[in-house]
Amino acid sequence: MITRRRLMGTAAFAAAMAALPPARGLAQTATPLTRTIPSSGEPIPAVGLGTWITFNVGDDPELRAECADVMAAFFAAGGRMIDSSPMYGSSQAVVGQGLERLGRPDALFSAEKVWTSSAADGPAQIEQTRRRWGVERFDLVQVHNLLGWEAHLATLLEMKAQGQLRYVGITTSEGRRHDLFEEVMRRQPLDFVQLSYNPLDREAERRLLPLAAERGIAVIVNRPFRQGALTRRLDGAPLPGWAGELGATSWAQVILKFILAHPAVTVAIPATTRVDHVRENLAAAGGVLPDAALRERIAAHIGAL
């Protein structure tokens, strides 16, 4: 049986929490959980919305309407950050259409990427992306998978200085190029990094997450469910008793709580095509989060299934 006291933190976990800027601490009862972007102090809900695969539905009107419903549920539940990329096929246009249908919610925190090997093509691609979203400017633009990162970062930092975007970041996924990623984190004035992290993919815990906390860089976690493979793998497996103590009613919530309980994580961006799942994901960012010891148990339990 897990006690409230244990959930609230072991000494090690508390120490990790204390190392972070004060506003960055975990809000245990807020719905949804809000984190702080270290470089600005701006609060941001800790669960965002990814669009990889799920929003790439082409011109299919029925599927586009489903995506808009997901976005509506996302904003209604208090979500803000939507993340996409030029690599994701029609996802940008689908996001743009959804935003238009929803009357362009003020709550939106737009997170995009630049993804081209050509330095010269970067600005034109960002502008094309902006038109697809139908926004005046992006809140965040990231260099996708470090492709052409030196030139694009220079472009993005200049755009930020000109007020054409608010935050600059870099991304990686599934553990790629962590050495270079770390080097860029150390040398460049980044606001955000985006990386893959979940109970089974914990490489980021070794260097990148501590470095982000140390450097005051916000962390976006992509592929929290391994593109759905992880939740499908756990489908049907009974939730352990401690899941109830956390207020988790699904494996997806357990996984999100595991991720969000890491003190360096700012936002997790699960992707989904279902309204009930987007509500469930945002609900995971409320209530109790596991302490360090329970996070180990979660990882071990999921790894054994």
Partner: peptide, 19 residues
């Protein structure tokens, strides 16, 4: 894209079977 060898085939699957 740099470091192609770090990508798997499913990294290039951009859409769902349903779509």
């Amino acid at each position: 894209m740099s470091e192609w060898w770090t990508y798997r085939l499913d990294d290039f699957l951009l859409f769902s079977p349903r779509t």
